[in-house]
Amino acid sequence: MNIFRLVGDLSHLLAIFVLLLKIWKSRSCAGVSGKSQILFALVFITRYLDLFTNFISVYNSLMKVIFIASTVATVYLMYIKFKATYDSNHDTFRIEFLVVPVGGLAFLVNHDFTPLEILWTFSIYLESVAILPQLFMISKTGEAETITSHYLFALGSYRALYLLNWIYRYYFEGYFDLIAVVAGCVQTILYCDFFYLYITKVMWGKKLSLPA
């Protein structure tokens, strides 16, 4: 474990709970893409299947449980409890256009052709594009609530910190996983446009609105 990975995991945890609290407190999921949340739930479920078979540490197991539970809870709040506030008219990204190609790629490019490894690879590839429905929804509505932009900033920062973690681990531990690094770069690049808007607008107290 290193500081980049620890801060990255905490940033990820923060993002998930900022969103969960926003929906719970405001009793509304306006401006939030349910499709992205479904993809994130799929990412965690396919990645943490080894939760009961491969114990790494208390921290590792605890975080896996928290990530799965909080993301499933978010999906529940969006599609069941506060379904009336779900903005399905703007959350129109066709996620099958993500899941199918990513599934195919996981079969073709992986470290090991075993079910668990292919599911892990699928999860890594899917996570890199899972935010697209959310970014697409913001581009359609033209703006995002400030709390939603904080959620996105923390979520985007987590994988950027993981990139630093991989640089650290490469030089100090000789650890390198090309699949995770490439997917992590794609994932972080997708946030660049948002990071620019966040830093130039939200940091100065303005609302995040995309140029019309």
């Binding site: 995991d9 491969n54 790494i56 470290h111 993981y162 699949i179 995770a180």
Partner: peptide, 10 residues
């Protein structure tokens, strides 16, 4: 190959 390395990352 990498898959043998324990997947210790989240």
């Amino acid at each position: 190959n990498d898959s043998d390395v324990n997947k210790d990352e989240l």
